[in-house]
Amino acid sequence: MSRLAVPKTYKLFIGGKFPRSESGRVYEVNSVAGEFVANAAQGSRKDMRDAVVAARTAQPGWSGATAYNRGQVLYRIAEVLEGRKAQFVEEIMLVEGSSAKEAAAQVDAAIDTWIWYAGWADKYTQVAGQANPVSGPYFNLSVPEPTGVVGAIAPQSSGSLLGLVATIAPILVSGNTVVVVPREDAPLTAISFAEVMATSDVPGGVVNVITGSPAELAPWMASHADINALDLAGAGNLDWASLQIAAAETLMRTLAPVEGIPASSLNRITAFTEVKSVWHTKSLI
């Protein structure tokens, strides 16, 4: 006689905790064939508000950690993810309709992408920063620094785990914190990934996951004055021009939508940094 399974309740991930949506709403997540798989929390604007507060609170600590430490914390996520591969393969097969091989390939790619970015934590400032030979008795360095709190829309029609990872990893590397809306119709991997983070060494609030409708949530992000930058990677099917118009109110930096999964690149890291030039007088006496 087969054992009766215990289904998981998928909630939000805010400030290192897993609350239900304050709105009390959930939506059905179905398989490609249309069968019910689970309920996901239908995040609201107030959940978004809470997530931004959590992200803002966590930001100084995350960016203030040493680059080596950030790199290790990010690497730890990949380790834990590797150990829980089977769960992600299963969720991807169930919701995205992938074959076992495709699902495994997506999880592998997600782990490898994560590691690629983790390794940048203590290097990107060296590659993207400069020592400037100014004409005068001054020491002058330009260093990229995290922009702050970043809102992100993960890809909505590509692999749900890989899309999420390729979106948030480059944001986190430099010390930003993030509020991300994962793929709406396949949010399970995002919440399972949040569980990975919760059991790794990631401080609460560094990553916040709000499942639900990007169309509903993105405008609240774009108009939120305490979000410094907006990654529209998965917003291609939204009215992203309007999002950019709303973002312009606070000169929020925006990165335009991409097709599919964002390619791994240093540019995605530096897109969410600010170059700071520091001058100091320099003289022997």
């Binding site: 400069q130 400037n132 030979p133 100014v134 004409s135 005068g136 001054y138 002058n140 330009s142 922009t147 410094n228 606070t250 000169l251 600010e274 170059v275 700071k276 030039s277 520091v278 001058w279 100091h280 007088t281």
Partner: peptide, 22 residues
């Protein structure tokens, strides 16, 4: 975006200049 320590309002073509936030 630009921090001047023990000096102010210095500019140079080799040194990036620009702002955070608004």
């Amino acid at each position: 975006g630009v921090i001047w320590a023990n000096t102010f309002n210095k500019f140079d073509p080799a040194s990036p200049f620009g702002g955070y936030k608004e």
